[in-house]
Design a protein around this nucleic acid. Sequence first.
DNA 1: TGTACATCAGTGAACGCGCGTTCACTGATGTAC
DNA 2: TGTACATCAGTGAACGCGCGTTCACTGATGTAC
Lengths: 204, 204
Amino acid sequence: MVRRGYHHGNLKQALIDATIKLIEQKGPSGFTMAEAAKQAGVSAAAPYRHFKGRESLIEAVALQGFTLFGDLLEFAYTKGNGSAVASLEATGRAYLAFARKNPGHYIAMFESGVSINANPEIAAVANRALGVITRAADELIENLPAEKRPPSTMVSQHIWALSHGIVELFARGEPGAMSPFPPEELLEAGIGVYLRGLNVLPKD
Amino acid sequence: MVRRGYHHGNLKQALIDATIKLIEQKGPSGFTMAEAAKQAGVSAAAPYRHFKGRESLIEAVALQGFTLFGDLLEFAYTKGNGSAVASLEATGRAYLAFARKNPGHYIAMFESGVSINANPEIAAVANRALGVITRAADELIENLPAEKRPPSTMVSQHIWALSHGIVELFARGEPGAMSPFPPEELLEAGIGVYLRGLNVLPKD
DNA sequence: TGTACATCAGTGAACGCGCGTTCACTGATGTAC
DNA sequence: TGTACATCAGTGAACGCGCGTTCACTGATGTAC
């Protein structure tokens, strides 16, 4: 983001980008307004023309993150080409890929203390993203006999929790160093076992 | 922790307790040395007689947390009375119970930015706790035919990731409000499906 | 048991710092005529 | 096309604040004789 003249031209996005970078590097509490302004090449007061305050800048990152996240999951889902199992597996891979490629967004979304439900705009876009997983779960189990079919929201929460747990524990520096398996393999294997347990994949 | 005279008598533990409470209430970045000292009824300089600095106080909480965590998992494990499945399920319940009853510890352990591997003392006690899950996984799969037996470390990482994901996403305020299932039920059902997928539980 | 002294565990004041935010301002831009 | 003016998006200085940490100090405690 090179600055041209007195006016920046794209300061809002430049601040969001700086925030993402800072959060990646120093964590959500290491990020400061002053630093973000500095990285955008602007005085410390300038951000307040675009954001109400510190919290609202982080929320903007989370909002953008959930939007992008939803798009990616949606896209991955369609890659399954109608196969429920393939859709779900693609969605899982997309989940990890997103967390790996956009750690700043991911942290703002899930680890920054931003209240997802307190902000309706964020809640809407977060629900859309999670809806993709639920839809995949729904298709997955629709052919199971009713007595042995768990609620699809439960299935999607299992998948989500497993994915999130792997991201938090094994896909970053700590304490992932201990893990002998790449996160992608870990998730794929985990989903595979789970799906066999659901009887939507053959015994082996 | 009531203060008696000039000397506190138990300041170290009082500071740890205050830290736990503060982290629970305001998150790891909301905790301050000054506040902790105040809650312990002591001047702001006093903590430095017992801890090198802020970081080291949080590390003490994490250390204590992992120790307690390990004890609880160990105890739960023995409750299985030799049944591998029962041991694993009890361990899972203990995991959630710990996170619910000791959120301050849990946050210090997993969300405070404390580097588990950078501190050998913490690493040792963390590995002991995780070792319980791995041991349970080991027993669980030892009777499976070798070709279809996944590594026990992988199984334990699946269980751990699922448990951690459920804690982070559904066992606290955010965004758990959306979840129609209690975390305990969610975890138990998830582990059940997973174990059927592993062929260590009958098909249904 | 008493005393002298070393050590331990506190105090209180002070420091430097950087942060979030506000405010009056000013330069740049867009628009109506 | 030119001009006047409203509005927008910056600046720079200042603020109050609270934090982590240090320092010289002092009160309390433990111990050797």
